[in-house]
Structures are given as C-alpha cells and as structure tokens.
Design a protein around this nucleic acid. Structure first.
Length: 156
DNA sequence: GCCAACGTTGGC
DNA sequence: GCCAACGTTGGC
C-alpha cells in the first residue's frame, strides 16, 4: 500500500465538502500538472491512503485521512467543453487524463499545520516542503507514521 | 497583495 | 533544443 498527499483549496473543495458528498466520495478531477497526473494515472491503487491537505488558506495544514476507492477513471472534465479543464485532444475512446475516486476516511484528531511540519527534522525530505506546488504527491511510510503521531499528540 | 518557485509556451 | 516571456501556485 502506498501513501499520498492530496491538496485542495478549502474555498474550492474542503474536507467537509468531501464528507457531505454522496457516499463521502468524489473524483479527483481537473489535475493538469503532468507530474501529478502521472501519479493519478499510473501509481495510485485502490486501498491506498492519502492525507487531505488544505492549501491557499489561513492555516495551510494536513486535516484528514482519505482513501483511494477506484482507479483508472477517465477525467470527465477533460471531455466537457464547458469545463476549464476541457482537453480537445482527449476523447472517451482515447482519454488523456485519468483520475481516481477518493473517499473520506476520518478527520485527524487535530490538524497539523505546514508551519509545524516544517519544524520537524524527520520531515525535511517531504515533497510538500521541497516542491510546494505539486498538488498530488507521494508520502513515505515513515513520513506518514510520523505525521499521524503528531496529529495524535495533543500537547499542541 | 507580493513574490519566489516552478511549469508552459512559442520564437528562433 | 534553447531560453525568454509569461502564467500559475501557494505561502506569507
């Protein structure tokens, strides 16, 4: 099983939006950064776990856990001429953008802020801290466990 | 609102 | 294929 971090701007789509979605699930569509799209298409597997990260907001932070429930899904926005993510080179027969379905799992006992993550020597290699713009990124098992421990540590 | 970091585009 | 110009992301 692999671990991931999924970024979303809470003003656009927050974790509570995911919790109130049908079946608490959504398609992670509209990702057009090639590196991020490649992970969605080729690397994610059903059962993988992901942190839900709130970006571009007052307190950027890891706020919740979710999981990958379906893979290999054609990104519907790429086929919709009305969408800002429409890609005329993509078609149902030969889709160019493949994504996954994500289900809410649980909020973390407390959110772990970017500021706090930056203070941890154990996390200095985290992609989030080295390529802040990548919206879908891998998390190592060590990083995953460490952040979970931080979230369960109520001394903050 | 600023700006650094990064990605994309397009002329050559 | 290089690289300047431009656009976007996202923290602060």
């Amino acid at each position: 099983m692999k671990y991931w971090l999924l970024k979303s701007e809470p003003d656009a789509y927050s974790y509570s939006d995911l919790e109130s979605a049908p079946n608490q699930r959504t398609l992670w569509d509209g990702v057009r950064n090639y590196q991020a799209a490649k992970l969605l298409k080729n690397e994610m597997q059903v059962g993988d776990l992901a942190f839900f990260y709130h970006s571009s907001c007052k307190v950027p932070a890891v706020v919740a856990l979710c999981r990958i429930t379906r893979t290999g899904i054609t990104d519907p926005t790429s086929l919709d001429p009305q969408s800002r993510y429409y890609d005329p080179k993509s078609s149902a027969e030969q889709p160019r953008w493949i994504t996954v379905e994500v289900a809410a799992d649980a909020p973390l006992p407390r959110a772990v802020s970017l500021k706090e993550l930056k203070q941890q020597p154990e996390l200095q290699d985290m992609v989030l801290l080295n390529n802040g713009r990548l919206s879908v990124q891998p998390v190592s098992p060590q990083q995953w466990q460490f952040i979970l421990q931080l979230a369960h540590n109520s001394s903050h």
